[in-house]
Amino acid sequence: MKIAVLSGKGGSGKTMVAVNLAVAAQRAIYADCDVEAPNGHLFFKPSRVLTTSVTVQIPQLIRERCTGCRKCVSFCRFNALAYINQQVMIFEDICHACGGCVLVCPEEAFHETTREIGKVTVGAAGSIRVISGDLNPGESEGIPVIRSVINQLPGQGKAFIDSPPGTSCSVMESVRQADYCLLVAESTVFGLHNLMMVHELVQLFQKPHGILLNKCLEGENPSETYAREQHIPIVGRIPYDTSIGRLNAQGKILAQEDRNLEKLFAVLLERLEEEVSRHETVVGSQR
């Protein structure tokens, strides 16, 4: 069971929820795909950490083979190549390492070199396996790092994927293998706007999904209204409570500090397991 926790904006509580769900599940994997700012490890403080490098293949020109046909230059969607003075110039900082230039070159005038863009660390915090993707500063393309994190997830067991904020292709990569998407939504108009964006994304990927209302206040909740109108299951609510914010800011795990919050995440996990098995049954009966 792989559950991706996502939201249209940062700071809505993805990491808090993913971390606490993993703790509630006891034996679980927490996978941090927020590779530009992975911070789940600050809560788990994992030990026995193993680090592996994530690399991409960057093209290099074999100058004497190039005939100047410019097929590579016109193919590159990212404009990382130019042809000046009978020579191909390669701009590594905008290259997305797609390998297209290598494929389209009729003269086989490219070879590829390896460049590190980030790291994946795997460690343990009790019975929880903590996997973190970490993009090197200055790199623009986090997808290969996210893919490396996702590839570490086994087929069995419970995994909670902490997605990057927003609805970018990084987010899409993080949810591709997920069985279920948990959308964390704030109770503001701005929160609703971001919820609608991320809701569109999970529909596009046809992922079973539900909403967790976070920072709930008295009175009208635009995200809750939207959930009702769109018939999206509300799988849980977390109240707006400064003590939650305080514990979280101290790097403490809520479910280990407060009995009520421990219960809240246990109930949420139970509900998610029901939702996932309900969708599996539907898919199973369609086959």
Partner: peptide, 15 residues
């Protein structure tokens, strides 16, 4: 209108 690398593409056009 390019997604990225506009400077490189524009410079190529001018060269």
């Amino acid at each position: 209108r390019s997604q990225g690398g506009a400077g490189v593409q524009a410079a190529q056009i001018l060269v």
